[in-house]
């Protein structure tokens, strides 16, 4: 009796916050939790274009183990995520340093950053179209025209180096995210620290290494984690650029799940692939959380 009264009082006391949170909570449940639950359930069915739920136990996972494409796809995923992440973070850092430390004039730095942001605000199709044009196998493609200037024969880049192509296209656009985060972090370092370092005799390299990098340690970790997770699960640029081909040479796990579900209409199998991806992503999150001490980062603002 007393307990229920306490509960009702508590509800009443917190009714306004709950009311305020409700729209957001409903959205999260519908668009974030439900899909994962659906995928998890679907992964144990052999749902196909007939949209029938027939549970088949762990058949999908057995099939995955025996899938002849799987080793190559996993290898592609690893190569794609590793190299794109490297470009994202390192190139983003270089851009951040260039536009906020080496270019001290804010207007010029802002201009450069805006230019690098353009691909982000243009639709992926347009962005990929430019890359398609760049890699075009005909002598009129940008890369081939450039090679023609120095008398080199044209090449069929997208079929000969598909992995390089998807890494470059994703790396370039992803770098702008790191650039924005890093430049704002660099801007927040007190000017005095740079002056002190200069007076103490530090070279440019030493300022970057001893002052800037330690100061933006948390943003660096955050960008690495964020990009890692989004690279694991995103596939739209690959789909548009190479479609995973030729054969499965540039196919990654997330794209494979899309292909299985929406091209072969093997919804059950596609869901199982997605579920594996979710588990991998969760695993990586947990590892990063532990290794980098993300808990500390999430706590308070850490741009020192």
């Amino acid at each position: 009796m007393k307990k229920s009264k306490f509960l009702i009082n508590g509800m009443r006391k917190h009714s306004l916050p709950w009311l305020m949170l409700a729209p957001f909570l409903i959205l999260i449940v519908i668009f974030f939790f439900l899909p994962i639950i659906l995928i998890a359930v679907n992964a144990f069915t052999d749902m196909d274009s007939a949209l029938q739920w027939t549970f088949n136990g762990i058949d999908n996972f057995k099939k995955m183990l025996l899938d002849p494409n799987m080793p190559e796809i996993l290898k592609n995923t690893f190569i794609y995520v590793f190299f794109t992440l490297a470009i994202n973070v390192l190139f983003g850092l270089v851009l951040g340093l260039l536009t906020s430390y080496f270019i001290q004039k804010e207007s010029v730095g802002l201009l450069f950053r805006t230019i690098w942001m353009l691909p982000r605000i243009s639709p992926p199709v347009v962005y990929v179209l430019l890359w398609l044009w760049f890699f075009d196998p005909s002598p009129y493609g940008i890369l081939n025209s450039l090679r023609a200037l120095v008398d080199l024969p044209p090449g069929e880049w997208l079929s000969s180096n598909p992995k390089t192509a998807i890494v470059l296209a994703n790396g370039m656009i992803g770098a702008s995210f790191g650039m924005i985060i890093f430049s704002s972090a660099i801007k927040s370092i007190p000017e005095n620290l740079f002056q002190a370092a200069k007076v103490d005799g530090a070279s440019q390299w030493s300022i970057i290494q001893d002052i800037i990098i330690p100061a933006i340690r948390w943003p660096l970790m955050f960008v690495t984690m964020w990009q890692l997770l989004s690279l694991l699960t995103s596939y739209e640029y690959i789909l548009l650029l190479t479609g995973g081909g030729p054969m499965v040479e540039s196919e990654v796990l997330s794209l494979y799940s899309y292909h299985k579900a929406f091209e072969s209409f093997e919804y059950g199998y596609g869901s199982a692939v997605s579920l594996v991806l979710v588990v991998i992503a969760l695993g990586f999150s947990a590892i990063i959380w532990k290794v980098f001490g993300m808990k500390k980062m999430m706590g308070t603002s850490r741009v020192e």
């Binding site: 620290l193 002190a196 200069k198 530090a202 002052i211 100061a215 020192e304």
Partner: peptide
């Protein structure tokens, strides 16, 4: 500044955190 052989104390101390 690095070639001037000076030492400086800043108002905010500017210690490397």
């Amino acid at each position: 500044p690095k070639d001037r052989n000076i030492g400086m104390v800043f108002q905010s101390y500017a210690l490397y955190p």
